[in-house]
């Protein structure tokens, strides 16, 4: 057998034996491993999921052209924030900021109005930056951090791509109303939790965790 093939097999074997160890050390979802844990990060953190869904619905509702331009902009914002996190230590984004953004974007979708392309791009970039800034992996080995960054980027982009792609193809009245119904659920959930956040802070009661990354949302 050729030495290259042996080398490849050795590299794959070594990677597979090393990955699980690094994974369990700082995975946001216990037992999944770094890459898969962070791949699911945009879904497993509710405020991220709401912001991603809201942004994707907004891009899809505005049509194929804006969705085609908005997705790379969202991805650039995400990658920029994640990349900067490697250079400058950051604390993450407070959950209520993510929720305010999700509420604003979902409200635009509920209203179902054509918005300027520039505004759609700015919102997509802001959403990408916020999610990226709040998805910074817990400090670990360089390999683990890179896997985490790759996982978050792929997960968020894939979710946005699928939802925006599906919603941009919906043209019938009831389908477009379906987009607005989904957005109204996002807006309602954000509104409720923002009310709770502000009510708690005004009453000086210990409230929700500081950053949304600390939240696990299934029971």
């Amino acid at each position: 057998m050729k030495p290259v093939v042996w080398l490849m097999r050795g590299a794959i074997g070594a990677s597979l034996s090393v990955l699980p160890t690094a994974a369990y050390a700082h995975s946001p979802v216990t037992g999944l491993g770094t890459f898969y844990g962070y791949l699911l990060h945009p879904v497993s953190v509710p405020s991220h999921a709401l912001l991603v869904i809201g942004t994707a619905l907004m891009l899809g509702q505005q049509g194929r052209e804006i969705a085609n331009r908005g997705l790379p902009v969202f991805g650039c914002g995400l990658i920029t924030a994640l990349g900067l996190s490697r250079l400058v230590p950051a604390q993450g984004v407070a959950e209520h900021i993510l929720l305010v953004m999700a509420l604003m974007i979902a409200s635009l979708v509920v209203l179902d109005r054509r918005i300027p392309a520039l505004l759609a791009m700015v919102l997509a970039a802001a959403a990408g930056l916020a999610i990226g800034h709040d998805s910074i992996p817990v400090a670990g080995s360089d390999t683990g951090s890179l896997l985490a960054l790759a996982g978050v980027t792929l997960g968020a982009l894939y979710l946005t791509l699928v939802i925006a792609g599906l919603s941009s193809g919906l043209a019938k009245t009831w389908q477009r109303v379906g987009i607005r119904i989904a957005a109204s659920w996002v807006a309602a959930a954000c509104l409720l939790v923002l009310s709770l956040t502000f009510a708690s802070s005004s009453k000086h009661v210990a409230s929700a965790p500081e950053t949304s990354s600390e939240v696990i949302w299934l029971c």
């Binding site: 509710p46 959930a189 939790v193 929700a208 299934l218």
Partner: peptide, 9 residues
């Protein structure tokens, strides 16, 4: 609620 956001959603 243990997790208000997921409960609300």
């Amino acid at each position: 609620a243990a997790n208000p956001l997921s409960y609300a959603l």
